[in-house]
Design a protein around this nucleic acid. Structure first.
Lengths: 152, 152
DNA sequence: CCCATCATGACAATATACTGTCAATGCTGC
DNA sequence: GCAGCATTGACAGTATATTGTCATGATGGG
């Protein structure tokens, strides 16, 4: 050690924030590219992937993704027009229909997820997954602290 | 250890991706809120903060922030209309004027940065800054790998 | 049963970003 | 110098997200 190599907390957070902004943009751009010829932007196949296991309401998808219900509603309406999803009846709520994948939607999503998996494997080959998981855990912790703080 | 607690690389990256999307949105929302009464959105004071030490061209700011030049140009034009910046002559390029803070811009930025610092200190109080720095370093590494991959 | 409250979908306005295109400027190699 | 290429600002079009408002459907307390 050649002295104090510890960043002040504030600077560390600022650096992380800048990195998150850049990384976010990069991930969206890659996602857009991977789905381009299938007509699936990042926003679209993120909605599709939210309901791959079980149909959910628009509001539920929005909560999972940390977006507003209106944003997801807009994308879902577009996906419905393009027959990638259908709104199915919700036994528990007449208005809040469930976003459900069509066969076309499921096939398109599978295709883009396969590409995404290949891409991820290529990019992160050889990295210890614990390092990735640790970064995710740190961000989760910060996010939860912020939620707590903001709800005061 | 109670067995294999290691996430497959792919799942770790997917989890990190989702967290980054949520965190990104959360940070932008907080930034918007902190500057609201000053008329400074996240996008605006990010541009201001990019030139706090030295004037830079729009293209340079865009590169630093990982955005397109057009996005930054738009915000910079708005900031110029509101007298928070002025475009000063660039001795090295006649068209590429330098984004330079006005006194008003510097004062507004100082105010919002002070609030942001207070907010950060409250949210991350007690956290080891090495953990934050490690997360930032991980994301930097991934970002650089992606850049390399994408430029092939 | 009714009323207050909450959740939801629809609609409108706006902010932030992207892509693409063009003309003007700057730069490099010959 | 000039020809070719890269950079820049301006403009147009679009995608993604936000906020706000309203009417309708759902729910729980009196």
């Amino acid at each position: 050690m050649t002295g104090n190599n510890q960043l002040p907390l504030n600077e560390a957070v600022t650096a992380l924030t800048l990195e998150v902004f850049r990384f976010n943009g990069q991930l969206l751009a890659v996602g857009d590219e991977l789905g381009r010829d299938l007509g699936l932007s990042s926003a679209r196949w993120q909605v599709l992937s939210a309901v791959v296991d079980t149909p959910l309401s628009v509001a539920h998808v929005a909560f999972n993704r940390g977006l507003t219900r209106q944003s997801v509603q807009r994308v879902a309406n577009l996906l419905a027009e393009e027959k990638l999803i259908i709104f199915t009846e919700n036994p528990r709520h007449r208005r809040a229909k469930l976003v459900t994948l069509t066969e076309l939607g499921r096939a398109s999503l599978s295709a883009v997820i396969a590409r995404h998996t290949d891409w991820v494997n290529k990019v992160v080959a050889g990295i210890d997954s614990n390092i990735i998981a640790a970064a995710a855990a740190t961000i989760t912790m910060l996010r939860q602290r912020i939620e707590t703080e903001e709800s005061k």
